[in-house]
Each structure stands twice: as C-alpha cells, then as structure tokens.
C-alpha cells in the first residue's frame, strides 16, 4: 500500500525531515561546543552565517511535520474503506502494531517542533541571538524523535496489508475491552467534565501568575501538558458520546468525519495550539531572560500566554457547544 498517494507524500516529507535533522544535528553539536558570539574569529563568523541556513531549513521541515500530522490522521481516516473491519482511522491504525506508536510519536514531534519554532522566533528578537546555544541543544534532543518517527512510520506503511482483519472503534473504545482506551472510555463522565471545565479555571488562574512570575510560567507549561491529556480524556469519555448522541460510542476519530461537521478539527486544533504555546512559554522560561531580550521577550511571552489561553478557551467553548446542542441526556 506504499503506493497510496498521501502515503508517498508523507514519506517524502519524513525523508526530507530526517535528512535535514541529521545534518542539522551534526551542525548543532559543533555549534554548542564552539559558539561564542563575542568572538570575531573566522570560524565564529562562518557558524553565524550557517545558522541562517540551518534555521531556515528547520523552520521549513518542522512546519512540514506539523502539516504531515494532519495528513497522516486524515489519510488513516480515508483509508479505512480498504480494510475489513475498519470504519474510521482507528481501524487503519490498528492494522499493524506500528500504527498507534507512529501517531503518538508524530504528536510528540509536533509539540517538539512547535517549541523549537517558538524558541527560534524568540532568539531572532535579540540583537546577539542569545538563545542560539539553547536552541541547538534542543534540536539535538529532538533529532532521535525525528529518526523514530521516520522509522516507525515507514514500518507502519510498509506493513499495511489489505487482507488483515482489523478492529473498529466500537471494539477498542469500550469500557470492558481492556487497555488504556478502555480506561479512558470508562472514565466517569462527571469527573471528565470536571477535568475539562475545572481545568480551564486552573489554566486561567495560572495564566495570571505566568504574566508576573517565572515560576508561574513554568507551572503554566506543565499544566498545559496535563490539560492536553485531560482534554483528550474528556473528549473520549464524555464529549464524543454527546456528539454522536450515543452513550457507548467513544471514538476520538469519528468526530473528524464530515457527517459530524468536522467538529473534531475544531476541538483538536485549538487544543494543540494552546498546548504548543504553553510548552513554548515554558521552554523560554527555563532560563532567566537574557539581557538583550529584556525588552522584546515579555511582549512575546504575553502573546504566547494569550494564544494558549485562546486555544484552550476555544477548545472548551467548542466542547460546551457540542454538549449543549446534543440530544443525549447523560445526567439526570
């Protein structure tokens, strides 16, 4: 099935990212050792010139990886007609053992890429590029993930066999099926709603703290990640049954289908944006603000906090609208 056009496109993007990242990591290792912005040495000048190339190439491939995640999910959704037993992306991802690991790794890479792009942008705000060493250190940390994504994704696509009978979402996301999916489906709906909307309150309070203190920003970043997990759990446990108007249908992928007005994208995209901005804020707060960024960084951080809040807020609002418009009665 490797000749499926979107698969070819995803593999092309992944190969490009892999080559770029491996090459950039080699450069990053050199940069982390030798970077000295005060020096006028020819080696330093060459390094400085080369950072433009590496940054531009990375902005390109990391943005590509983000789009590739959407393409990957949507393609899994569309390919479900090819497999016996599959009715949505879950079935396609379940065809072999690499499907879900590939998706999870791609989500992790999405966040890693978003954090790197945010740090890269902040770095460009200072005259002396104060975050360069940190940025390239981060890149070295990110490169094993890119290798893992490329390898697992290739294994997944290469091993897609049309004669495999797979399981659809109605088998996987049921309370008595066992595994993480079952636990999430059997999460108490009231508790999940508490997490979803109570979490928004905590986020809002932390955002106020993040505007003032560094510790607040770090806490905000950590809570963003927790809220991402809580948000996904709430979607599986309570929001999707409301959308399908079926008490026992918990699939987090069927909501991406046109018959539900693509509402899944309206839920997930803001959630991903909110989490990415929160994580980026945390990465920028790991160190004290460099002298050259004293003026430019605080407004940028404020923008990040607002973006993150807006993302989480929109996620909550879409979930609330879906619940209010639903004809399903889960409580009372």
């Amino acid at each position: 099935m490797i000749f499926h056009p979107p698969i070819l496109a995803i593999l092309l993007a992944s190969t490009l990212s892999l080559v770029t990242l491996v090459w950039a990591s080699g450069f990053a290792a050199r940069l982390v050792r030798k970077w000295d912005v005060a020096s006028g040495h020819a080696g330093q000048i060459a390094l400085e010139k080369r950072t433009y190339l590496v940054s531009t190439a990375l902005v390109f491939v990391l943005a590509l990886e983000a789009v590739s995640l959407i393409l990957f999910t949507e393609n899994a959704e569309r390919m479900s007609v090819l497999f016996v037993g599959a009715m949505c992306a879950i079935g396609t991802l379940n065809v072999n053992a690499y499907g879900f690991p590939a998706l999870i790794l791609k989500v992790a890479l999405f966040f890693g890429a978003a954090v790197w792009l945010i740090v890269n942008h902040a770095d460009g705000l200072g005259r002396d590029y104060p975050l360069t060493r940190f940025k390239y250190g981060l890149l070295i940390a990110l490169s094993p993930l890119v290798v893992a994504v490329a390898a697992v994704q290739f294994a997944y696509f290469y091993n897609l066999r049309a004669d495999v009978i797979t399981s659809c979402c109605s088998r996987v996301f049921v309370p008595n099926a066992g595994g993480l999916e079952a636990d999430l489906s059997s999460l108490d709906p009231a508790f999940a709603l508490g997490l979803l909307f109570g979490g928004l309150g905590v986020i809002a309070v932390l955002a106020l703290a993040a505007l003032r203190w560094r510790a607040g920003r770090l806490a905000y970043a950590a809570v963003s990640l927790v809220y991402f997990a809580a948000g996904i759990s709430a979607v599986i446990s309570v929001v999707s049954p409301y959308i399908y108007e079926q008490f026992h249908h918990h699939c987090p992928f069927c909501i991406l289908k046109p018959e539900y007005g693509y509402i899944g994208y309206w839920l997930y995209l803001p959630l991903f944006v909110g989490t990415s901005a929160g994580l980026g804020l945390g990465a920028l707060s790991l160190k004290r603000t460099p002298a050259s960024l004293q003026e430019a960084l605080p407004p940028f951080r404020r923008r990040l906090i607002l973006t993150s809040l807006a993302g989480f807020g929109l996620f909550g609002a879409v979930a609330l609208t879906a619940i209010l418009r639903s004809n399903l009665i889960m409580f009372g």
Partner: peptide, 26 residues
C-alpha cells in the same frame, strides 16, 4: 486531502531545492 498531497509533491520539493541557493545569495 488531495490538494494537500499535491502540495507535498510540488511545493515541498521546490522549496527544499531552493533553500541552499537562497541562503548562499543572502
């Protein structure tokens, strides 16, 4: 989905091929 796939096949190779020359010029 098709338009995105098409963009991956055309805009992505073009952009990838021009990054190094653009940087050299810059």
């Amino acid at each position: 989905l098709q338009v995105t796939t098409l963009a991956f096949f055309t805009i992505v190779p073009y952009t990838a091929a021009t990054i190094i020359p653009i940087w050299r010029a810059a």
